[in-house]
Amino acid sequence: MNSDRDLSLVEALDHLLDRGVVISGEAVISVGEVDLLYLGLNIIVANVDALTRVSGTREAKQLPAPKGE
């Protein structure tokens, strides 16, 4: 997988996790003035930047590229 594909997936994850309309059942909360994402009243509370950095750059390398690339 080349760096463009890695970058594309990191971008896609950044938009998925950090953008879009928040509907009921979700909440964006702040702790220590740093925004955290609380996913769907489930158990994960993840810093968005850390999640995209770790999931996007390390683990994405094991995943196939998005269609159209």
């Binding site: 998925l16 953008r19 928040v22 998005p66 269609k67």
Partner: peptide
């Protein structure tokens, strides 16, 4: 699941205009 959603959202965006819902709503 996150990767699947990210790819689907990219494909949908390539197809036509839509409003994105923040990931996590079920």
């Amino acid at each position: 699941l996150i990767a699947k959603a990210a790819r689907a959202r990219q494909e949908l965006a390539a197809k036509e205009t839509f409003i994105a819902i923040r990931y996590g709503a079920t």
